[in-house]
Amino acid sequence: MAYWLFKSEADVWSWDQQVAKGEIGEEWNGVRNYQARNNMRQMQLGDLGFFYHSRAEKEIVGIVEVCALAHQDSTTEDARWDCVDIKAVRPLIAPVTLGMCKEDPRLADMVLVNNSRLSVQPVTPEEWGFVCELGASQP
């Protein structure tokens, strides 16, 4: 299993909207960055990810699961752009802010800390455990 982080602006697509999609999940569409797209192409069913509210909140608020492999993004006819579908698994008991990640030396190499603009990014198993610990959630 691999771990990921998915960034969304809360006023565009929020954790509550993701939760409302239930077991069917939702396409993680609209990504127009090659590195983020390539990350989605590597994902496998059952991979887990953090759901991150970017912009104002800048915090990890929940855990999602990849429920459909990379496929054509339905928001464009351009065949270069793929996406996966994700479904909500559970919220973090306590949101983990970007500031908390930056202050924790165990997360110094985390992509979120060093490249906060990448919208879909990998998370190492160690980082996954540390963030879950900070969020008072089971890994």
Rank of each mutant, 00 (worst) to 15 (best):
E9V: 04
E9G: 03
A10E: 09
A10W: 03
A10Y: 00
A10G: 09
D11S: 13
V12H: 11
V12M: 09
W13C: 08
W13T: 08
W13L: 14
S14D: 07
W15T: 02
D16Y: 01
Q17A: 14
Q17V: 00
Q17M: 14
Q17R: 14
Q17T: 08
Q18V: 13
V19Q: 13
V19I: 14
A20H: 05
A20S: 15
K21R: 15
K21H: 15
G22T: 12
G22H: 13
E23H: 13
E23I: 09
I24G: 07
I24M: 06
G25H: 12
G25R: 12
G25A: 11
G25P: 10
E26K: 07
E27S: 06
E27Q: 10
E27C: 00
E27I: 00
N29T: 09
N29S: 15
G30R: 07
V31N: 11
V31K: 06
V31M: 11
R32F: 13
N33W: 04
N33T: 03
Y34S: 08
Y34N: 06
Y34F: 14
Y34T: 11
Y34C: 02
Q35E: 13
Q35G: 01
Q35W: 03
A36F: 02
A36L: 08
A36I: 04
R37Q: 13
N38H: 07
N38G: 09
N39R: 08
N39A: 14
N39S: 12
M40P: 11
M40N: 09
R41C: 10
R41H: 01
R41P: 01
R41S: 02
Q42H: 11
Q42G: 07
Q42P: 00
M43R: 09
M43S: 08
M43E: 08
Q44K: 15
G46M: 13
G46H: 15
G46F: 13
G46W: 14
D47G: 10
D47P: 12
D47T: 07
D47E: 08
D47H: 10
L48M: 12
L48Y: 13
L48E: 06
G49R: 04
G49F: 07
G49Y: 07
F50N: 06
F51Y: 15
F51L: 07
F51N: 01
F51A: 09
Y52L: 05
Y52H: 04
Y52R: 04
Y52W: 10
H53R: 04
R55P: 00
R55L: 07
R55G: 00
A56P: 03
E57T: 04
E57D: 08
E59D: 13
E59Q: 14
E59C: 10
I60R: 04
I60D: 05
I60S: 03
V61E: 01
V61C: 02
G62L: 03
G62M: 02
G62Y: 01
G62F: 02
I63W: 00
V64C: 11
V64L: 03
E65A: 01
E65I: 04
V66Q: 02
